[in-house]
Simulated assay, not measured.
Amino acid sequence: MKGVLLVNLGSPDSPTPKDVKPYLDEFLMDERVIDAPKWLRTLIVRGIILRTRPKKSAEAYSKIWWEEGSPLIVISERFKQAVEAQADIPVALGMRYGSGSIAEGMEQLQKQGVDEVLLVPLYPHYAMSSFETVVVKALEVREAQFPDMQVTTMPAFGKNPDYLNVLATSIREKLDAFGYDHVLFSYHGIPERHIRKSDPTSYHCKINDTCCGMNSVAHHTCYRHQCYEMTRNIAALLNLPKDQVSTSFQSRLAGDPWLKPYTDYEFERLAGEGRSRLAVITPAFVSDCLETLEEIAMEGKNDFLEAGGTDFMHIPCLNDREDWVTLMAKWVNDWARDGRLPAV
């Protein structure tokens, strides 16, 4: 029997340092997030970061926490329930970090008689620290706890034409009412070395526009290329003028070169150039979370206005929009019927 496991990032159980600390520990100790040797990763995470970061992160989570709980968890559960209502097979939800784990999701499916699972990492793009770590963890869990369960992974879907149309529609609805003079596509940032490590050719990725514009098998796992390609595709669908669109990357850690340009620098640059009405899209995420609701919609807005901008709009993620739910349910049912996966 077939079933589906949707997997998102995860969240602390509450916006308190007590609950944020173990969540951050699990997240940052992932070798695909901080890809240093374990002894060094342990020193960085447990010897430095976890001494101060939980309190600061808890304060940030407190700003966005909903009465029902973590926005990412609440939205993911709503999405799962909506997809399940249209799907022909059982649907479960798991989180890569924190409560509601991948193992719990697989166990729920197993109890319903499922022995063939479609794994759906809820990330539009491929990156070591998002898509890849979900797949690796899911396969480890299956090997250790569910050896008779077959797992098929849905590929990163950021280039799928139907997905791009749904995303463009959600953006258009907000832009039409805003009167923007610039649209910033802000993606989750990753270290530059992750791009090189994900390059199957070991030589293609130079992390510049030249290599991203060339045809290469490396693009299947190149996060930078996929982000710039998404900006280009969405801008074309929306007929956005080239001089009113740019791409940036947020949420970096100090000490290493991360993908550029940095979003906070872009806020200052755009305001300094006289762009007064800024719309910001965060298309690396399908669900609003700390990075979209606090870092962009709150802190980013303050940064832009303090730099001289006058109006700022964060365009929400797809969350549990009906057209996004319907598309995911279609992908699920296509796979359940004949094993077909979405075109990418």
Results as ranks from 00 to 15, higher is better:
116 E>A: 13
65 W>H: 03
62 S>I: 03
54 P>G: 14
139 L>R: 15
100 G>F: 09
53 R>G: 01
134 V>M: 08
73 I>W: 06
144 A>S: 12
131 F>V: 00
106 M>Q: 06
103 A>D: 12
54 P>E: 13
113 G>T: 01
66 W>T: 14
155 P>E: 07
96 R>N: 04
98 G>D: 08
92 A>M: 01
88 D>Y: 06
136 V>N: 09
55 K>C: 02
151 V>L: 15
147 P>D: 10
102 I>R: 03
70 S>W: 04
120 V>C: 12
145 Q>I: 08
122 L>C: 07
89 I>Y: 04
96 R>W: 01
129 S>K: 03
140 E>R: 15
92 A>L: 06
76 S>A: 15
67 E>G: 07
144 A>F: 03
102 I>L: 11
135 V>L: 08
144 A>D: 13
124 P>Y: 03
145 Q>M: 12
152 T>P: 04
134 V>R: 05
52 T>R: 15
104 E>V: 06
56 K>V: 08
90 P>Y: 05
69 G>F: 05
130 S>E: 04
156 A>C: 07
61 Y>A: 06
55 K>L: 09
137 K>P: 12
62 S>A: 15
154 M>K: 04
66 W>L: 15
66 W>D: 12
89 I>A: 02
137 K>Q: 15
152 T>A: 12
58 A>N: 04
148 D>Y: 07
98 G>K: 02
98 G>H: 06
158 G>W: 04
79 F>T: 10
146 F>E: 03
130 S>Q: 00
84 E>K: 14
125 H>G: 09
72 L>H: 00
103 A>R: 10
118 L>C: 11
157 F>E: 14
125 H>A: 09
82 A>M: 05
70 S>D: 13
118 L>M: 13
133 T>A: 09
130 S>M: 06
102 I>H: 05
63 K>T: 11
118 L>F: 12
102 I>M: 02
105 G>S: 05
115 D>M: 15
123 Y>C: 07
83 V>Y: 02
95 M>Y: 13
56 K>R: 13
131 F>P: 02
75 I>N: 09
151 V>T: 07
152 T>S: 11
85 A>D: 10
103 A>I: 10
127 A>M: 03
100 G>P: 14
158 G>I: 06
93 L>T: 04
96 R>V: 03
70 S>Q: 10
124 P>A: 06
72 L>E: 00
55 K>D: 05
121 P>L: 00
83 V>H: 09
109 L>V: 05
137 K>V: 11
62 S>G: 10
53 R>I: 07
123 Y>D: 03
85 A>P: 10
150 Q>E: 13
55 K>E: 06
113 G>S: 05
73 I>A: 15
69 G>N: 08
102 I>T: 07
